[in-house]
Design a protein around this nucleic acid. Structure first.
Length: 512
RNA sequence: GUCCCGUUCGUCUAGCCCGGCCUAGGACACCAGGUUUUCAUCCUGGUAACAGGGGUUCGAAUCCCCUACGGGAUACCA
């Protein structure tokens, strides 16, 4: 048992990668990395009717977005491929033959109706409804006759009858079941296509899988698979059947409560690291008092058997908070890069390339004000454009003091005479380089400023107020309203600075 | 119905394996203050939980049993 740890994520491409699948992949990946082993991706596409290339594409993209990388898989290859089950049919056929020859599998010719009828009879007797094993002990002659009459049957696994089996589960502990409770399950369909349990065992064996983390809906499959490993004279991997992710009501996640596709979170403005961190926490904890951690920190502590035993509910509010936290920690350049795809028309693409300093200053003012990157688009819009429309709160602030309009007119004159930098798209490179927003009182300005910065602007505004006997606290609100159209946002003089002289003066006069 | 798993603040959880350090800790949310020209950030404080019942023990969130509730499985789906 000194074999190298090998784990896998084995999605079936019948839909997008959802939250639960992403978490399963994440735990397998983390365990592989923490154990210093390999992580591979295998595609379980034996359900041909429901598998699509599009789903496969989306799943891979979702995993990549989360930063989960695999060492072997359908796209990157590897020594134990192919990694698509439909390309491994000959391997399954070989195993099927062997299992038949050794008496572990038998052909069953029962029609679906017959199987169902047997199930109902069992249920009526108060027993577990399952295949009634009617063709389990047919003689060779009987089998030949049925095959001649009905064509090829399905291949079933001959489960040991009336035998207790203990499955050591890394998450749940030892689970004990009488194998008589389990079906003689179908391994191969009449058309030759293997079913999940069979292909899974063959692949886990052939690919040298040592640990399997998967949803607890597979717990009973764990028994079926372990028994087959035993029949093959092999040791089953260590299983960890982890609880499902639930919705608010404790039921399965509904589409209302969570997005079905992990990539929808990207579209909504979440950072992959935040989503990664959050879903890791759904069933595992880093420590008693820290829930934000890096991947390296996680890998240093991650252990499969520390995954919780009870189901957890998805709470997007906490995810949002965590995303805000990650956004705030980004350095300025990373924040601009991350946010760029989300600003839409609020800032022209040219601005990013031609006046990165200006864009960085605009972004910087919002870094601690957004939780989702997608909020950027509407928040930042006021910085450019000919004018702004005042929202309700802004209109109120403007109307609060009867002298407000006079203040705006007067202040417009002050700004016009000031050393305020020009409005974008004029070249503001020197100004934006000199003053890194958001401005802070405890940060001194440059020694030889090329223009007025927020601090000078504030000083001149205060002087203007003193001169006219205006309370500064009263002055600030109508000015903000006229300039930005809202009553919230970055520091007022950061706003003035970003707006630049022409735009600031024009907006003040428009409301005066 | 049958089999299996689970149950600590509203939510995610720490503690449980190896009983006493638990007057049960942290985080989100919420409430109240503070900082601030607004908003946000940030800081301080607060509300709030061991599902219920029996044991075992000097002592139980921690061990055992029962009940209730929740979830999963019961497919030629994975």
């Amino acid at each position: 048992m000194t074999s190298r740890p090998r784990l896998r994520f084995a999605p079936s491409p019948t839909g997008p990668l959802h939250l639960g699948g992403a978490r399963t992949a994440l735990y397998n990946w983390a365990a592989a990395r923490a154990l210093g082993g390999d992580f591979l991706l295998r595609i379980e596409d034996t359900d041909r009717a429901r598998s699509t290339d599009e789903s496969l594409r989306i799943i891979l993209e979702g995993l990549r977005w989360l930063g989960i990388h695999w060492d072997e898989g359908p796209d990157v290859g590897g020594d134990r491929g192919p990694y698509l089950q439909t390309e491994r049919l000959d391997i399954y056929a070989r195993y099927a033959e062997r299992l038949i020859a050794e008496g572990f599998a038998y052909e069953c010719f029962a029609t679906p109706e017959e199987v169902d009828e047997g199930r109902q009879r069992l249920q009526a007797e108060g027993k577990r409804p399952m295949y009634d094993r009617r063709h389990r002990d047919l003689s060779d002659d009987e089998r030949a006759a049925l095959r001649a009459e009905r064509g090829p049957g399905s291949l079933r696994f001959r489960m040991p009858l009336d035998q207790e089996w203990t499955l050591p589960d890394l998450c749940k502990g030892d689970v004990r079941v009488n194998l008589a409770e389990l079906d003689d399950w179908v391994m191969v369909r009449p058309d030759g296509m293997p079913t999940y349990n069979f292909a899974c065992v063959v692949d886990d064996l052939e690919m040298g899988i040592t640990h399997v983390v998967r949803g607890e809906e597979h717990l009973m499959n764990g028994f079926k698979q372990a028994v087959m490993f035993d029949a093959l004279g092999a040791t089953a991997p260590l299983y960890a059947h982890i609880p499902l992710i639930l919705g608010k009501g404790g039921k399965k996640l509904s589409k209302r409560e969570a997005d079905v596709n992990i990539l929808d979170y990207r579209a909504k403005g979440y950072l992959p690291d935040a989503v990664f961190n959050y879903i890791t926490l759904l069933g595992w904890s880093y420590s008693g008092d820290q829930d934000v951690f890096t991947r390296d920190e996680m890998l240093a502590k991650f252990r499969i058997d520390d995954i919780g035993k009870s189901g957890s509910k998805f709470d997007e509010e906490k995810l949002r908070w965590m995303n805000g936290d990650y956004v705030r920690r980004l350095d300025r350049a990373a924040f601009v890069d991350a946010g760029r795809p989300y600003v839409g028309d609020a800032l022209p693409a040219a601005a990013f390339d031609e006046q990165p300093g200006f864009v960085a200053n605009v972004f910087a003012c919002y870094q601690e004000r957004v939780e989702l990157l997608s909020e950027l688009a509407e928040r930042v819009g006021w910085v450019l454009g000919e004018g702004v429309e005042l929202d309700e709160a802004a209109q109120k602030n403007l109307a609060k003091h009867e002298d407000a309009k006079a203040w705006l007119a007067g202040y417009a004159d002050v700004l016009e005479a000031s050393g305020l930098p020009a409005s974008y798209p004029a070249d503001r490179a020197a100004a934006d380089a000199a003053f890194a927003l958001p401005s802070a009182a405890d940060r001194p300005g440059p020694d030889a400023p090329p223009c007025d910065g927020p601090a000078q602007l504030e000083a001149s505004a205060r002087a203007f107020c003193d001169e006219r006997g205006i309370k500064f606290g009263h002055f600030v609100h109508p000015v903000r309203a006229a300039l930005t159209g809202t009553n919230k946002g970055p520091g007022l003089f950061d706003c003035v600075f970003l707006l630049g002289k022409e735009r600031a003066v024009a907006r003040l006069r428009a409301q005066a």
